[in-house]
Design a protein around this nucleic acid. Structure first.
Lengths: 211, 211
DNA sequence: CGTTAATTTGACCAAATGGTCAGAAATTTA
DNA sequence: TAAATTTCTGACCATTTGGTCAAATTAACG
């Protein structure tokens, strides 16, 4: 029987293994070439199986894509959920920024996957953006707003601050090729990200205006 | 005779008009769907001409794409060239940031076009990135380095500072759909960008740590 | 006006690609 | 081991799409 036919049916060992293999391969390919730029054959080749066999597990290309997006999304949102309202504002934002930067360093494909999707109008995950993402951001923006009101942060708009953090950190995943063109292979060494983190921290906390 | 056959040949009135029409249409489509996601038919339709007629002016899809990239690139690099070594550092960086943000507001397609190209590995413009872009950035990074040495800026790495400015400002073009999902239609109003500019300025100049 | 050159189009082709299907091979289960 | 079920594959199909071409139409020019 087809593995997707019944959702309640128990998953086979082979099924679990192959689905994982496909999704892992697909993440890489989709992140590099986007949805339309990716062919099923590419994924199949990377997952070391024939195209019809891959289509035995996922009926349509779109199904693979959505699965990959969903699977990556949780991991992607987690850091923001950990922003603690009761913690020290500077420390909390520092931790969050640093964590996001680390994710750009260690798993740039996830960032690129979303960048692609959003650039193309987010046709597949618009409802997620307007749903759980919006809710989460609204919640954390309120936390930051509270910190500002309490005088624990300079007066800034919480939403734009969050956007700035996303922008600066994800830039290190999405635009790494541009950085490599400018700085050469230094960008592949760990101390590159250390320097990035230092600069980001300094600018975010102190600003560039000397005192 | 084919218009592309002889480069030195004078361009017809019709030729100039249609080429411009094509490139304008192509910018929009390529920025939205990327290179592979774009079909010649889409561009032809938007430019209000038949596909074979479009191919009369540009032999291959790639030719259109490269033309669009080249045409947009100059405009894209101009602001950085205007960073004046003899000006006041804070003022110069402020002007640059504000100009880039305005460009994201008024011509987001250009930003998205490059974001797409770079995300996909910059296959068409790698040589430009390693050439004129690298040179320009090296030059301006030296200027910033000088400012830092002179104590006119907080101690930050010039390259990472430039990357931060790119990231934050271009984010408002590339990720506008995500912002709209979170903030609604406010993002289409002018005071949205004003608020963005204020927040960016505050963070960049003062930092978020209250004093 | 009439000739020449530029422009436009419909019809068409070949390759790429998403997806199907009948049946072979392998695995599980009784 | 034998039947039942799952997994896998080669061959195949339909559509999309980049690109060609001969011929028709229009514009330019002497």
């Amino acid at each position: 029987m087809h593995p997707r036919a019944g959702q309640t049916k128990k998953r086979t060992r082979i099924q679990a293994k192959n689905e994982a293999k496909i999704l892992e391969a697909a993440l890489d390919i989709f992140a590099t070439f986007g949805f339309r730029g990716t062919t099923i054959d590419q994924i199949a080749q990377k997952a070391e199986m024939s195209k019809p066999n891959l289509l035995y597990y996922f009926r349509r290309k779109e199904d693979i894509y959505i699965s990959v997006l969903e699977r990556t999304l949780d991991e992607w949102l987690t850091p923001l959920t950990e922003l603690d309202p009761d913690g020290d504002p500077i420390e909390e934002i520092g931790k969050y920024t640093s964590l996001k930067l680390k994710m750009s360093q260690n798993d740039p494909t996830a960032s690129r996957l979303f960048a692609n999707e959003i650039l193309h109008g987010a046709p597949m995950i618009e409802h997620v953006l307007k749903g759980s993402l919006k809710n989460l951001v609204d919640e954390k923006a309120a936390v930051i707003h509270h910190w500002v009101k309490a005088g624990k942060l300079t007066k800034v708009d919480p939403y734009h601050l969050i956007f700035m953090i996303w922008a600066t950190t994800q830039h290190y995943a999405d635009f790494k090729i541009q950085m490599r063109a400018i700085l050469g292979d230094d960008v592949d060494q760990p101390d590159y990200y250390e320097k990035a983190g230092q600069t980001i921290s300094t600018v975010f906390f102190e600003g560039i205006k000397p005192r």
